[in-house]
Nucleic acid binder design. Structure first.
Lengths: 415, 415
DNA sequence: CAGTGTTTTTTCGAGGCTCGAAAAAATAAG
DNA sequence: CTTATTTTTTCGAGCCTCGAAAAAACACTG
């Protein structure tokens, strides 16, 4: 049940608004902030002087902003990089990475490790994650006090409260409450997010013009994932991270999917599925655990050269993605799509069949207006999304604490 | 870009909060309102005395609330029925209905007409709608001044701004801006909504325990429609009303759908599809325009009696609905489902195959926990949803006017 | 039936917040 | 050096919400 607005919430919300305006704009003047927030100059002046006093914002040197206009020059406000730091941890198939990001969003340290996630035990997996975080926190260059948040992204399904991994293709383990584990271990608030959702968050920051209120990020990798932003908000399921586009049903009773079910989109468009079809194996053949990027590149090259089973495999992938997107578009209407991941480099092979399939679906009439971007490198995107999410948390819950839309439920997922 | 909170927004929002608390609770005392809104007694007292002064709320007679407790008895506050009135217009296949509803939500007049919507011209269709509204407004018993809003629901796709019908199965006409037309004609704000979305809104009001934050309402009728509430908000597409569950793809290239495409869920589960399969016609056979309820009942009876093509037709319908729901559940996770419409009476024939199909999809692991309610009569539900939506508008935009949206854009879609 | 206890509702002053107007500050142009 | 222009701060006014206390309205008790 929604709750009334108390008088003191007002300041807190407007503080958060100012911080978020600075984060978005980079180095806005007080006047610009007043314009974007709609608040009066007096209010902005009061709030920003508070924030500067508290070390959250800093005034840029006057010399930096070369003004060509007459009048008193604007003083740019920016986030104080030392106000806080966050950790972004990304756990994906056979790889674990961490980055330390300052409050202004700059990466100040990072580390990456190769693991054999598929065979590791539960404790080993947790241990590695804890260890890599600990190493970063013990870095003498880092003021541990200032680390305000850890965001961990994983391929797979997380719960809707951002506490736990429920299921993941990168490990046979299930239900690991990474967020709780890290919080207990380090006493730092942590969240556990789905990798594709973080991709979507990052795309929104990177290119707010293209990826504003409604868009889709699809991960074309060993599996198929999706991050979806609708009406400016990250879309999640009711209980889990949701948006399991790869497991929408393409053909009832069809090809065997890695999840054990049949006919999922992923069972036609995941790397293992393309590989399986390229080798002309049965649709019932057990999905292989991993296909190297090199092997996929070779497959794509061969598909471009000759009209053989490789090309057909990509065609089938495109068809599955197209009908899947068509079904999705029946629900949410068409929206810009970003294709992310290694196989996005082979999107030229996928696109024709994909568009042909979409044309046969609810997205059909807009088929031409649907545009696809490709971004082959998912890891930086995921990391960036984690960082932004963690920083947004610091902005809102730490530097503008109090009743942030506490509508019964804990938190809203704002991209 | 989100916008700051001005000082005067505070009162407006809290006014809206109080009104909405009264609408939800029926006859709450000031103390109860204070509890549910979290505002202080002083504030509630001030706001409610304003609202009573303005004729929006009324105090219930003390005698009505028989208090068994000691102390000063609570005074129930209720909506003043005369504060405003709204019109709910429902346009469906061959039928047009209107109801006048007072501010407290009671129907005070209604009218229903049979039309031949499929053959009517654009002007005739518009004319009938305008005429039926005009007749209600000219009713001498009604104070026209008080009519604050018209809500019109239609089977089919509406635009996301609730202004126009874009496409509808009940007429060959497209792009009729009913909301604008009615506004121009009568000078009363109007909205145009999708019928299934209104069903969802109504279910939420009827049974907030079962249908709270996440649920699905599916209309099983000549076509298949869906209304979806996620995280307490009505789900709509980015450009249109969206949620076109019936046109998700069940079998690529499969049965011919009324929309002209192939393999849609509706092409297996709509009345015309069940009828087509029961008659063992080809999947490519042109969908019939209408199947009478009596005919569908006969089909269902026969399906219950003998294991013939009728039973198989219902089985196929269940399968299509099940795989469709499975795909949907991959995106949003399982949620309670209400099956609405005449064919919901045959849900016993549909359910086994439906559950079997779901079990093969992402909803599979929760198959048992998914529960279905049935409600054969959709019209009252749609009308109720329209009424609630129109009344919510009056609550918020008229009786608590000002900057409602906390974001720059005008927010409209709140269930 | 008057007094007492209990619960609800209103009243009232205090404290905060935002706003508009005016002042102050900082620079370019003349 | 003066004037024009733009940004930022200051200050008083006007609201709003809150807590505490008072007032109101009833049940219970002897």
């Amino acid at each position: 049940m929604s709750v009334g607005i108390r008088h003191d919430d007002l300041r807190r919300r407007n503080r958060a608004m100012v911080i978020s305006a600075v984060r978005r704009a980079g180095q806005p003047s007080r006047t610009e902030i007043a314009a974007t927030t709609g608040l009066s100059h007096s209010t902005i002046s009061a709030i920003s002087s508070d924030l500067i006093q508290e070390g959250i914002l800093t005034e840029s040197k006057a010399s930096e902003t070369v003004s060509l206009k007459r009048g008193r020059p604007q003083v740019g406000l920016s986030l104080n990089p030392e106000a806080a730091a966050v950790l972004a941890v990304v756990l994906s198939l056979n790889s674990l990475s961490v980055a330390v990001i300052d409050y202004a969003g700059q990466v100040i340290a990072e580390e990456q490790r190769r693991l054999d996630t598929l065979t590791m035990s539960r404790d080993e997996l947790i241990g590695e994650c804890v260890a890599i975080v600990r190493r970063r926190l013990e870095d003498p260059d880092l003021d541990v006090q200032s680390v305000a948040r850890i965001a961990l992204a994983i391929q797979g399904i997380t719960d809707s409260h951002a506490r736990a991994m429920l299921w993941s293709p990168i490990t046979p383990q299930t239900n690991i409450a990474f967020a709780d584990i890290l919080e207990r271990e380090f006493g730092i608030p942590a969240i556990m997010e789905n990798d594709c959702n973080m991709m979507a968050v990052a795309l929104r920051w990177r290119d707010p013009d293209r990826y504003r209120d409604d868009f889709i990020a699809i991960l074309l990798s060993h599996g198929i994932g999706m991050g979806l932003v609708l009406k400016g908000e990250l879309f999640t399921g009711t209980h889990s991270s949701g948006g399991e586009f790869g497991h929408m049903i393409h053909r009832p009773g069809g090809a065997l999917c890695r999840c054990g079910r049949r006919g999922c989109v992923e069972a036609y468009a995941g790397n293992y599925a393309i590989w399986r079809n390229a080798r002309q194996l049965s649709e019932n053949a057990e999905p292989v655990a991993d296909v190297s990027d090199a092997e996929m590149r070779a497959l794509a090259t061969r598909a471009r050269e000759t009209d053989g089973p490789e090309r057909e495999a990509y065609r089938k992938a495109g068809e599955a993605l197209g009908f899947g997107l068509g079904s999705l578009f029946a629900l949410i209407d068409p929206a810009p799509v970003a294709m992310v991941g290694a196989s996005a480099a082979a999107f030229d092979l996928i696109e024709p069949a994909l568009r042909e399939a979409i044309a046969q679906t609810a997205g059909g009439q807009h088929s031409d207006s649907i545009s696809f971007d490709t971004e082959p490198n998912e890891l930086p995107l995921i990391r960036e999304g984690c960082a932004m999410r963690a920083l947004s948390f610091v902005d809102q819950e730490i530097f503008a604490p109090g009743a942030q839309g506490k509508s019964g439920t804990i938190r809203k997922h704002v991209a």
